[in-house]
Design a protein around this nucleic acid. Structure first.
Lengths: 159, 159
DNA sequence: GGTGAAACTTCTAATAA
DNA sequence: TTATTAGAAGTTTCACC
């Protein structure tokens, strides 16, 4: 996949939209001293190029009653079962991310739950999958995010 | 923090917006057979209640040249240094998430990088932080997401 | 590439039900 | 809580730089 070339204006547009996707194009245009039409065309191009995949809301899961985060390392009986187990994992609700990894674990996932009890239930489901040898849980006591905005800045500085 | 009560309509609105934050309120209204004004009021309420924190773009980091994901477990010399080390970690670019955890590691982070070489540089920065005893890296070979939409469905089914 | 204006669509707040 | 409305605002297209 060819690397798409973004210029300074594209960066600035992304920068604004990453913070708030509903920012009016006219507002962006004013800030960047370009026309709203230009903003529109550039966003469309980035969408067509697949740079912008979509947009999403950021919700406060704590307020919804889901404050518990754990990471679970999964050890498999046989590496060949990876695909099968991964499919099963993806069917478990509240498992939000799963990675096949090198290193200590075969598969590595993130669980978002209500509380310890709820998380235990989810981890039991993981443990019960055929081919899973054992799991190792790490409970998150504190989450600290370098948000997307910061990541973008890191990337743009390098590009 | 009191748990906010969302009804079926709120769920449906969130459901649509989670997929595309720029969906016109009039479109949402049509789908749900309510008026656009109602959609507007409800979204505003959820924003005011802090359920909706914000909105963000989803970008294809692979297309931007950042296809490499690793998880790094950090062991500290002394637990009391957690706060200090966490602050330092948050200053390292390309470390996108950091968690203080119970279990195997003291701190656990996610690194997004260009390639192995780039990741190595970032992990060296982690290793070099005063108070860090050693780190353990897990390289992601394959990422599989149960996206926000699925998480929301899990939550709504339970609420 | 970009602009600016026209035509069209959507938002938002106020009022009424 | 919801519906209706109307002025304000935003989007999108297009002819022209």
């Amino acid at each position: 996949m060819a690397r798409f070339r973004l210029d300074e204006t594209d960066h600035q547009i992304l920068d604004i939209l990453i913070d708030n996707t509903r920012t009016a194009f006219t507002d962006i245009a004013k800030k960047l001293n370009i026309s709203a039409g230009t903003v529109h065309v550039r966003v469309k191009k980035m969408e067509e190029a697949g740079i912008i995949i979509g947009s999403s809301l950021t919700l406060d899961y704590k307020k919804l009653g889901y404050a518990f985060i754990a990471y679970v390392g999964v050890f498999l009986k046989k590496t060949s079962q990876t695909k099968f187990v991964l499919e099963r994992i993806n069917q478990i609700p509240f498992v939000t991310v799963a990675h096949v990894t090198t290193g200590k674990f075969n598969i590595f996932c993130k669980v978002r739950a209500k509380d310890t009890e709820h998380a235990k239930q989810i981890i039991f489901l993981l443990d019960d999958i055929e081919g899973v040898y054992r799991t190792e849980t790490m409970i998150s006591l504190e989450e600290s995010l370098n948000d997307k905005k910061r990541l973008m800045h890191s990337i743009f500085k390098e590009l």
